[in-house]
Amino acid sequence: MADFNLSLSDPSSFILMGTPGLEAAHLWISIPFFAFYIISLLGNFMVLFVVGKEQTLHKPMYLLLCMLALTDIGISTSVMTKALCIFWFNLKGITVRGCLTQMFFLHMVSMSHSAVLVTMAFDRYVAICNPLRYATILTNARIAKLGLVGLIRSVLFLLPLPLLLSRQPFCGNHIIPHTYCEHIAMVKISCGDTTVNRAYSLVMLFVVIGLDLTLVALSYGLIIRVLLRISSKKAYQKAFNTCTAHICVVMMSFTLFFISILTNWFGQQITPNVHIILANLFFLLPPMINPIIYGIKTKELRDKVVKYTSRR
């Protein structure tokens, strides 16, 4: 009731409820979330540290790993900072501008993450299908430019979302039953016409994700065609092993993304609290698991990590 009164008295703020109905269990819910978050930070910062320290890892593949680590840190941090404030300190209030900023940053970093995965697929395509020209096609400078293009694409595509929402009226209900601000949650509590907002988000979703998935599938289609021509089983396995880490990351990221979309659209029988917990896990699990996958599958990176951890 106090949260409801606050939402009425301050029209410039929203109330993030966390997991409504499970307020007494917020501390217990926060324990695995915090553990996953710390593991993801440790793993991704370890990747950044090792690649930055080791001159032998200053290659396009590891520069892409650093980009992936940065987006993973951005995704998990943008979700968990506010969620932990709600779980630990009951700080549920957030300004409208703060909510729009969190929403924009979360979706922008998520789209940048998708762009990095596409660039990594292109990297694997060149490494396997055109290995003799790999060093000339994919230089560090070119990888950095591709990363910048992905970032600019994300900003330009997602900037209209907060701009459109900032023009929407939010009448009496400023309560968001979630742990973080997301576009669809803010659209639902608006009392204005949100047709343009919904249409733009759907078009952007299908165009961008559809394009990224198509490019990844095209890259691996060409890779498979080349692999099938390799007669040596040892050479085939060696070439395929260079792709397994990326394939695992792509499958996990896009699978969780589509599960999240499907549960939002068709999961009416799933309780809201389960929706909220799953939504947080969808943003926490990939950042936690990605560095583990690459640490296990990439021998050169694994050896360097072991070297630094054994020193300490």
Score class of each variant (00 low, 15 high):
A144L: 14
R153T: 14
A135W: 03
L117C: 13
L165P: 08
I143N: 03
P131H: 12
L156Q: 01
N140Y: 07
V118E: 06
A135P: 05
S154G: 10
L165T: 03
A144E: 11
L138H: 04
L132R: 13
V149Q: 00
I152T: 03
M120K: 14
Y125E: 14
H113P: 07
A141I: 06
L165W: 02
D123W: 05
V155M: 04
C129H: 15
L164K: 14
L117T: 09
S112Y: 09
L165Y: 06
L151A: 02
P131L: 12
L161S: 08
N130G: 12
S154Y: 01
R142V: 06
S112H: 06
I152R: 00
M120L: 12
V118W: 06
P160I: 13
I152C: 05
N140D: 10
R153S: 13
F157S: 13
P160R: 04
R142I: 05
T139C: 04
C129R: 03
S112F: 12
P160D: 02
V116G: 08
N130E: 14
I137K: 04
L117D: 05
L165A: 13
L165R: 09
Y134T: 12
V149E: 00
L117S: 15
L138N: 07
T136H: 07
A135Q: 05
M120H: 04
L132K: 15
L161F: 13
L117K: 11
G147S: 01
L156T: 05
F122R: 07
L163V: 13
I128M: 00
V118S: 06
I152H: 01
V126W: 01
G150F: 00
R142H: 08
L156E: 04
T139F: 02
G150M: 01
L138F: 02
H113R: 07
A144S: 14
A141N: 05
V126P: 02
L148H: 02
F157Y: 10
R133C: 15
M120F: 13
R153N: 15
I137C: 05
I143D: 03
L151Y: 00
L156D: 10
M120T: 11
N130D: 14
V149I: 00
G150V: 03
L165M: 09
S154T: 03
V118I: 07
C129T: 09
F122L: 13
T139S: 02
I128W: 02
L161R: 13
S112G: 08
A127M: 07
I137D: 03
L158V: 03
F122Q: 14
L151V: 01
Y134S: 15
A115Y: 06
T136M: 12
R133F: 08
T139I: 04
K145V: 08
C129Q: 05
R133H: 08
F122S: 15
F157D: 15
R142P: 04
N140K: 11
I137S: 08
Y134C: 04
L156P: 07
F157C: 14
A115L: 07
H113S: 02
G147A: 01
T136Y: 05
L117P: 06
L138V: 09
